[in-house]
Amino acid sequence: MGLNAEELNVGDSYSEVIVEDLTRTQIVQYAGASGDYNPVHSDEKFVTEVAGYPTVFAHGMLTMGMTGRMVTNYVGDGRLTYYGVRFVNQVWPGDTLTARAEVAEVREENGETLVDLAISTTNQDEQFVLTGNATARLN
């Protein structure tokens, strides 16, 4: 497993559709697993009447988790040394998200060969919902 350094070039990319038609149920599932029960993610009455949003929205960490699946499918299991993101737009029920990784640099550090990836996730309107970076060990 893992990517081979000699086969990677700056600009190479990999993408996956990480969710199609995101459901409120999946958001609830993430709340239960993560322990983040903020009602803005599951409570229609609270989020519309108190928080003032049109409906519930996904945890940023759900989008980061789903995007992480694309990253580990690309670089291999247990290969990440860093993964960090910014949440740039909210993710709503019904959204279909595509996550993409692009090779920014292949480098050596402390005797290991690493790849730096630029990460982004977009919705069905091609609006960015997440941007970030990841670093992984290569063969």
Binding site: Y30, G65, M66, G68, R69
Partner: peptide, 28 residues
Amino acid sequence: SIGDSNPIYADESHAASTEVGSIIAPPT
């Protein structure tokens, strides 16, 4: 919950056959 059916997160015998060697947790 994050829609990841990778057996490295669920299947002990699969995980034992990989370079990781055991079940690990997803990155987040």
